[in-house]
């Protein structure tokens, strides 16, 4: 045994010292000491330093590892929605979808998708849609083409369906929507409200009403499903065929009391010189609420228009 003091933590040293106390002490041979001293006298080669390129690789490698870990975690933990496919009314397959997944039905199949815990979407035959987001405050689909029926029980603005020409924003509702591959389509609301939006244009569609949408134009003006055919035909002209004064006059002439829904939207969509005609027609159906003035309404004051719309809704 070499006569050298062991190095290490105190508790290790004590244990080792205790063990050593039982061993006989033996002098190291001289040859060992000589070789050690000789090696100390020789110049030591410089320690090999780590190549610098290793350090340069370390940073991107770390970033890559973090990215892969985050991606894997997201893949494993992302919210998935259950989809039940049916054919002739009978379930044929159950699967789950997550953000980024596509879902398609053919001519003979339907599918029902559970939207988290806030509702369901029924997907009609020959439809194609993509799941965009599945987070708790952003349930978002993109309908490429086809037809869906959504039933949502949640506070407003948690469920969205995008199309090429408009986005349906749920305000607590039940609705059907169909759209073709170009983005032309129709939204029909059966309960609650839907806000149909595109590039700053907003159509508020209540239960019992519908709203068309066209590629390049966005959502049109909403109308009640029982509105006179002459009104809806004129509205189509006004919204999507460079609406002219003749179309507007036809709308005003055929409007009923309930069609103030349509007129309220037109108030802010007609050219300013025609606005008074729309206003006067609306007032002919229902007197202005006490906190709505003609001046503010014609100036399209947002708060005034909201108060007026909320009051008109009692007649819809």
């Amino acid at each position: 045994m070499f006569n050298r003091r062991p190095q290490g933590p105190p508790h290790h040293n004590e244990a080792i010292a205790q063990a050593l106390s039982h061993l006989p002490v033996v002098e190291a041979p001289d040859a060992i000491w000589n070789s050690i001293e000789a090696s100390l006298d020789r110049p030591q080669p410089a320690p090999a330093s780590a190549p610098r390129w290793n350090l340069w690789l370390l940073a991107p490698a770390t970033v890559l590892l973090i990215f892969i870990a985050a991606w894997s975690w997201n893949l494993l933990h992302r919210t998935r929605w259950q989809v039940v496919r049916t054919s002739n009314g009978a379930p044929t397959r159950t699967e789950t979808v997550a953000a980024g997944d596509w879902l398609q039905t053919d001519a003979s199949t339907r599918a029902e998708m559970r939207i988290g815990d806030i509702g369901t979407v029924e997907i009609e035959p020959n439809s194609r849609l993509r799941v965009i987001a599945t987070s708790a405050n952003n349930h978002r689909l993109s309908l490429d083409h086809g037809e869906i029926s959504a039933t949502i029980s949640a506070p407003p603005k948690l469920f969205f369906v995008e199309t090429k020409s408009a986005t349906a924003v749920d305000l607590g509702c039940q609705y059907d929507m169909k759209v073709d591959e170009a983005g032309n389509g129709l939204l029909r609301v059966t309960r609650g409200w839907v806000s149909f939006e595109w590039q700053g244009r907003e159509s508020l569609v209540p239960a019992g009403a519908s709203c068309r949408t066209r590629a390049g134009s966005g959502p049109g003006t909403p109308f009640f499903d029982d509105a006179p055919q002459r009104l809806t035909a004129a509205l189509d002209q006004f919204d999507f065929a460079a609406g002219n004064e003749a179309a507007l006059n036809a709308i005003l002439a055929n409007a009923r009391s309930r069609d103030t829904l349509t007129l309220w939207h037109l108030l802010s969509r007609v050219p300013a010189p025609l606005r008074t005609g729309v206003f006067d027609r609306m007032v002919s159906f229902a007197p202005l609420p006490s906190d709505v003035t003609r001046e503010k309404a014609l100036a399209l004051d947002p708060q005034t228009l909201k108060i007026w719309k909320d009051e008109l809704a009692w007649t819809w």
Binding site: P155, L171, R191, W193, A207, D310, A313, W314, T315, W316
Partner: peptide, 22 residues
Amino acid sequence: LTIGNSVAGQNFAMKSAAFVFR
């Protein structure tokens, strides 16, 4: 009293009501 469709309530929780009144 004023009677209206459920949408007049401006409350998503009322959307299934047969009607609302004020």
